[in-house]
Protein backbone atom coordinates (compact mmCIF):
# COMPACT_ATOMS: atom_id res chain seq x y z
CA UNK A 1 0.00 0.00 0.00
CA UNK A 2 1.49 3.31 -0.89
CA UNK A 3 0.74 6.95 -0.85
CA UNK A 4 -0.72 9.20 -3.50
CA UNK A 5 1.84 11.55 -4.93
CA UNK A 6 1.73 15.30 -4.53
CA UNK A 7 0.71 15.59 -8.16
CA UNK A 8 -2.17 13.12 -7.69
CA UNK A 9 -3.60 15.23 -4.85
CA UNK A 10 -3.16 18.44 -6.83
CA UNK A 11 -5.56 17.06 -9.46
CA UNK A 12 -8.38 17.19 -6.90
CA UNK A 13 -7.44 20.67 -5.74
CA UNK A 14 -7.21 21.98 -9.29
CA UNK A 15 -10.67 20.59 -10.00
CA UNK A 16 -12.17 22.59 -7.14
CA UNK A 17 -10.15 25.70 -7.97
CA UNK A 18 -11.24 25.45 -11.61
CA UNK A 19 -14.90 25.02 -10.63
CA UNK A 20 -15.00 28.18 -8.50
CA UNK A 21 -13.06 30.14 -11.09
CA UNK A 22 -15.46 29.12 -13.84
CA UNK A 23 -18.70 29.59 -11.90
CA UNK A 24 -17.85 32.63 -9.81
CA UNK A 25 -14.88 34.19 -11.60
CA UNK A 26 -13.16 34.04 -8.22
CA UNK A 27 -10.63 31.28 -7.73
CA UNK A 28 -10.54 29.23 -4.57
CA UNK A 29 -7.18 28.94 -2.83
CA UNK A 30 -5.51 26.62 -0.38
CA UNK A 31 -5.41 27.72 3.24
CA UNK A 32 -3.59 24.96 4.97
CA UNK A 33 -2.86 21.31 4.36
CA UNK A 34 -2.20 18.72 7.05
CA UNK A 35 -2.87 15.15 8.02
CA UNK A 36 -5.88 13.96 9.94
CA UNK A 37 -6.48 10.79 11.85
CA UNK A 38 -10.03 9.66 12.59
CA UNK A 39 -11.48 13.12 13.07
CA UNK A 40 -12.15 14.91 9.82
CA UNK A 41 -13.06 18.59 9.74
CA UNK A 42 -16.46 18.09 8.12
CA UNK A 43 -18.98 20.85 7.48
CA UNK A 44 -22.76 20.99 7.03
CA UNK A 45 -22.88 19.47 3.56
CA UNK A 46 -20.59 16.85 2.14
CA UNK A 47 -20.17 15.31 -1.27
CA UNK A 48 -18.38 11.99 -1.20
CA UNK A 49 -16.96 9.81 -3.98
CA UNK A 50 -15.56 6.35 -3.41
CA UNK A 51 -12.71 4.95 -5.47
CA UNK A 52 -11.70 1.38 -6.26
CA UNK A 53 -9.65 -0.73 -8.71
CA UNK A 54 -5.98 0.21 -8.22
CA UNK A 55 -6.99 2.57 -5.43
CA UNK A 56 -9.00 2.27 -2.28
CA UNK A 57 -10.78 4.85 -0.13
CA UNK A 58 -12.89 7.91 -0.53
CA UNK A 59 -12.69 11.61 -1.18
CA UNK A 60 -14.83 14.20 0.59
CA UNK A 61 -15.64 17.78 -0.25
CA UNK A 62 -17.34 19.35 2.72
CA UNK A 63 -18.59 22.94 2.80
CA UNK A 64 -20.51 25.03 5.32
CA UNK A 65 -24.06 25.98 4.31
CA UNK A 66 -23.17 29.69 4.25
CA UNK A 67 -20.56 29.11 1.61
CA UNK A 68 -22.96 27.09 -0.53
CA UNK A 69 -25.71 29.69 -0.16
CA UNK A 70 -23.27 32.35 -1.28
CA UNK A 71 -22.31 30.17 -4.22
CA UNK A 72 -25.96 29.71 -5.22
CA UNK A 73 -26.49 33.47 -4.96
CA UNK A 74 -23.56 34.12 -7.25
CA UNK A 75 -25.09 31.58 -9.62
CA UNK A 76 -28.35 33.56 -9.37
CA UNK A 77 -30.18 30.62 -7.85
CA UNK A 78 -32.82 31.87 -5.48
CA UNK A 79 -34.04 28.51 -4.20
CA UNK A 80 -31.67 27.84 -1.33
CA UNK A 81 -33.36 24.76 0.06
CA UNK A 82 -31.30 22.02 1.68
CA UNK A 83 -31.87 19.98 -1.46
CA UNK A 84 -30.32 22.66 -3.63
CA UNK A 85 -27.40 23.08 -1.23
CA UNK A 86 -26.78 19.33 -1.44
CA UNK A 87 -26.96 19.57 -5.23
CA UNK A 88 -24.33 22.30 -5.17
CA UNK A 89 -21.92 20.25 -3.07
CA UNK A 90 -22.70 17.22 -5.27
CA UNK A 91 -21.86 19.18 -8.39
CA UNK A 92 -18.45 20.09 -7.02
CA UNK A 93 -17.84 16.42 -6.13
CA UNK A 94 -18.91 15.56 -9.69
CA UNK A 95 -16.40 18.00 -11.13
CA UNK A 96 -13.65 16.46 -8.99
CA UNK A 97 -14.55 12.95 -10.13
CA UNK A 98 -14.62 14.06 -13.78
CA UNK A 99 -11.12 15.47 -13.54
CA UNK A 100 -9.90 12.43 -11.65
CA UNK A 101 -11.32 10.10 -14.30
CA UNK A 102 -9.45 12.03 -16.96
CA UNK A 103 -6.19 11.92 -15.01
CA UNK A 104 -6.15 8.45 -13.48
CA UNK A 105 -7.90 6.69 -16.36
CA UNK A 106 -9.26 3.22 -15.89
CA UNK A 107 -6.86 2.54 -13.01
CA UNK A 108 -9.19 4.42 -10.72
CA UNK A 109 -12.86 3.43 -10.71
CA UNK A 110 -14.91 6.32 -9.31
CA UNK A 111 -18.39 5.98 -7.80
CA UNK A 112 -21.31 8.34 -8.37
CA UNK A 113 -21.07 11.13 -5.75
CA UNK A 114 -23.09 10.72 -2.58
CA UNK A 115 -24.56 13.87 -1.04
CA UNK A 116 -24.80 13.91 2.72
CA UNK A 117 -26.04 16.56 5.08
CA UNK A 118 -24.51 16.69 8.57
CA UNK A 119 -22.00 13.86 8.21
CA UNK A 120 -20.41 12.86 11.53
CA UNK A 121 -16.79 13.85 11.75
CA UNK A 122 -15.78 10.56 13.35
CA UNK A 123 -15.53 8.09 10.55
CA UNK A 124 -14.93 4.49 11.35
CA UNK A 125 -14.04 3.55 7.83
CA UNK A 126 -10.88 5.52 7.25
CA UNK A 127 -8.69 3.98 4.56
CA UNK A 128 -5.38 5.63 5.26
CA UNK A 129 -3.65 5.90 8.57
CA UNK A 130 -3.54 9.61 7.88
CA UNK A 131 -5.85 11.28 5.43
CA UNK A 132 -4.88 14.51 3.73
CA UNK A 133 -6.91 17.51 4.79
CA UNK A 134 -6.76 20.53 2.52
CA UNK A 135 -8.60 23.62 3.63
CA UNK A 136 -9.99 25.39 0.59
CA UNK A 137 -10.69 29.09 0.92
CA UNK A 138 -13.23 30.95 -1.14
CA UNK A 139 -14.05 34.48 -0.13
CA UNK A 140 -13.97 34.30 3.66
CA UNK A 141 -15.35 30.76 3.78
CA UNK A 142 -13.42 27.61 4.41
CA UNK A 143 -14.37 24.25 2.93
CA UNK A 144 -12.42 21.05 3.38
CA UNK A 145 -11.19 18.57 0.87
CA UNK A 146 -10.32 15.28 2.51
CA UNK A 147 -8.32 12.80 0.49
CA UNK A 148 -8.44 9.42 2.14
CA UNK A 149 -7.18 7.32 -0.73
CA UNK A 150 -4.40 4.81 -0.85
CA UNK A 151 -2.84 3.23 -3.86
CA UNK A 152 -3.04 -0.54 -3.85
CA UNK A 153 -0.95 -1.29 -6.92
Amino acid sequence: MSDLSEKDIEIFIEAIGGYFKQITQEAASIGVAYLAKNAFPLNDFTGMIRVSADYDGALYFSAPSAMLRHLLTVMKETNQSEENLLDAVGEIANTISGNARKYFGENMVISIPEKIAGLASMLNEQSRRHAYVIIIKWKHYSASLIVDISRLR
Binding site: I9, E10, V32, A33, Y132, V133
Partner: peptide, 13 residues
Protein backbone atom coordinates in the same frame (compact mmCIF):
# COMPACT_ATOMS: atom_id res chain seq x y z
CA UNK B 1 -0.74 25.53 -3.37
CA UNK B 2 1.91 23.04 -4.35
CA UNK B 3 4.28 24.20 -1.63
CA UNK B 4 1.58 24.11 1.03
CA UNK B 5 0.60 20.63 -0.08
CA UNK B 6 4.19 19.37 -0.21
CA UNK B 7 4.57 19.54 3.59
CA UNK B 8 1.83 17.05 4.58
CA UNK B 9 2.94 14.85 1.69
CA UNK B 10 6.48 14.70 3.10
CA UNK B 11 5.11 14.28 6.58
CA UNK B 12 2.94 11.40 5.42
CA UNK B 13 5.89 9.72 3.73
Amino acid sequence: AQEILSLPVMLSA
